[in-house]
Design a protein around this nucleic acid. Structure first.
Length: 571
DNA sequence: GCCGTTTTCGGCCCGACTGTTTTCAGTCG
């Protein structure tokens, strides 16, 4: 799949054009296209071959041509042209929050800033502050931006799990096709469903090991080979530049290796200590008593040696799971198959890419029992928020579609919480809905806590969307007192969302667990803007499991009828 | 560059926020 490679080039092109002061609408057209490609779960090459690129909203004549050019020649001429006129490192600086293209261009033209070191220098010697339109506060903000930026792209770079899943999934499929391969399983923090991962470990059973590793290092997705031995190969992958290791292990050690490479380190240390106390030695090759091999073929066998049940990977963080396992008191985690509905999906009526019919069809294929279409409300102009008449028409369409589909489509809205804490529609409009998600999208620093509290007081509000507003890729989130929100949410019976979009995952695992302990219900919503994004439901479940949630902690395990019955407070 | 039940040209992303301003520019969502 070349979707991500092309997305990267389009994003770079957008960045470079922005730096050169190109028409902002053109820039955002490229950005939009890049985002669409990144979220697109089907192979863009297939679409190109079938001549269907232009069917994708946001891909027009120009970008379709560039995609085709890349697929045929491996490059995009326009990209090459623009990049060659742009100092290489300057594009990277655009990622610094609160430092935009205009300021950067100014610093480049007037002060010769070409990279991060230059930028730091002109901050220190005060020349940046002396530029027209600049001043001490702006420079201070830039400095803070640099700190944030360095925090995210320092030595130990990490990638959001949602970006990595498609890469790993297709890679695993490729490796499975190699001759002599019997089994392929990704391990590491990927398997533990951490929200970000630093590298990928894949284990495999098969022989001859050397041949398998060699084939792995020769795959087209390989950018660079770091190691290529008899049992281990290590590469940098092309689209994300992430390191991926493949290890070939003997069948009788597979469980031990999977356990070992899944981690976490803290979990393994605790397990090894436990083993030592009982006179065993545990390694990636198996459990041993002296020289004698005791177990190792499956993870269950390994844990069983110590009188432990198998522990789900999402729990393996040494947060008390081993002690609980010893007592046979591991929590009963929610399973993916128990999720019956998705509470947060955008349709074409606001800023989604698909019709409600397309969404319903896809969700039905995925085996869901119901979905809530939650478009943006009228104030959110930039996301195509619905006025009341359009909302009415949309609801009528949902009524019609419900006649046709087996899956239940709930009428929902993601309603903006306005500056004064009121909701974006009057109550009579909200009363027509099955799901009301209240959300902050504007005024991130303005009384956010009070506004959310005020919104929750409205008994028509069911769920608070992305309650902290953080983005994993760098935005810190609202200035919000989550404890107060949780306290009131518990009292009023309002649910909090686990937003399953890979860059949000908000509430995160820690806050979700806190909410569970307080007895607050949680609702997973994908925030999908196209049908491909519905698959992120798995990420939401991953967070739920890492937060030790049981089926009863989530609204998503209710049938839609149960949900509607319970949604009214005191009802 | 994308898009079209008012348009194949001329709109698109508007408003909040911040800091620098003396009426506005840059950044962000």
């Amino acid at each position: 799949m070349k979707n991500l490679e092309i997305a990267r080039l389009l994003d770079e092109l957008a960045d470079a054009l922005e730096f050169h002061g190109e028409n902002p609408f053109k820039v955002s057209a490229y950005r939009r296209a890049a985002k669409i490609l990144r979220d697109f779960t089907e192979d863009i090459e297939v679409y190109a071959k079938e001549g269907r690129l232009r069917e994708i909203p946001g891909i027009g004549e120009g970008i379709a041509k560039k995609i085709k050019e890349y697929l045929e020649t491996g490059k995009i001429t326009k990209h090459k042209e623009v990049i060659s006129k742009t100092p290489r490192e300057i594009l990277e600086l655009l990622k610094i929050p609160s430092l935009g293209p205009k300021t950067l261009k100014l610093a480049h033209d007037k002060l010769g800033v070409k990279n991060l070191d230059d930028l730091k220098r002109v901050i220190e010697d005060g020349s940046l502050a002396r530029l027209p339109g600049m001043g001490p506060k702006k420079v201070e903000n830039t400095k803070k931006g640099i700190e944030l930026y360095e925090g995210f792209t320092g030595e130990e770079k990490r990638w959001q799990l949602g970006l990595v899943i498609p890469v790993v999934t297709s890679l695993v499929e490729e490796i499975k096709k190699f001759p002599g391969v019997k089994k392929v399983v990704p391990a590491g923090s990927y398997r533990r469903m951490k929200e970000t991962v630093g590298d990928i470990d894949i284990l495999c059973i098969g022989e001859p090991g050397g041949e398998i590793i060699k084939k792995f290092t020769e795959l087209p997705v390989v950018e660079r080979v770091l190691a290529c031995g008899e049992t281990k190969g290590s590469i940098i992958e092309k689209s994300l530049k992430i390191q991926i290791d493949l290890r070939v292990v003997p069948e009788r050690s597979f469980g031990a290796a999977l356990q070992y490479f899944t981690g976490s380190k803290a979990h393994n240390i605790k397990l090894r200590t436990l083993a030592k106390g009982k006179g065993y030695k545990i390694s990636e090759y198996g459990v041993f008593k002296g020289e004698k091999y005791i177990a190792g073929e499956t993870e269950e066998d390994v844990y069983a040696v110590f009188g432990l049940p198998w522990i789900p990977p999402e729990l393996r963080e040494d947060r008390g799971e081993i002690e609980l396992a010893l007592e046979g008191k591991l929590p009963r985690l929610v399973e993916y198959d128990e999720i019956k509905g998705d509470f947060h999906i955008h349709s074409k009526y606001s800023d989604g890419a698909n019709t409600i019919e397309e969404i319903a069809k896809k969700a039905e294929e995925m085996g869901l029992e119901y979905i809530a279409i939650c478009d943006h409300s009228r104030s959110l102009k930039y996301a195509g928020g619905l006025d009341i008449d359009t909302l009415k028409r949309r609801n009528e369409e949902i009524d019609r579609l419900n006649e046709k589909f087996k899956i239940k489509i709930l009428k929902g809205m993601e309603v903006d919480i306005l500056q004064d804490g009121s909701l974006d529609y009057p109550d009579p409009v909200l009363e027509e809905l099955d799901v009301v998600i209240a959300a902050i999208h504007m005024g991130f620093k303005k009384n956010v806590t009070e506004r959310i509290l005020a919104a929750m007081e409205n008994p028509l509000v069911d769920i608070i969307a992305h309650p902290t507003g953080r983005l994993i890729s760098g935005r810190e989130g609202y200035d919000v007192d989550l404890e107060k929100i949780m306290e009131r949410a518990r009292e009023l019976g309002v649910a909090l969302e686990i937003n399953a979009y890979f860059d949000r995952l908000d509430l995160d695992e820690h806050n979700s667990r806190k909410a569970k302990e307080l007895g607050i219900k949680l609702a997973i919503g994908t925030d999908a803007h196209n049908i491909g994004m519905l698959q992120y439901l798995r990420l939401g479940v991953g967070i739920a499991r890492r937060a030790w949630l049981s089926p009863s902690d989530l609204l998503n395990t209710l049938s839609w009828k149960e949900y509607l019955k319970k949604r009214r407070r005191n009802g």
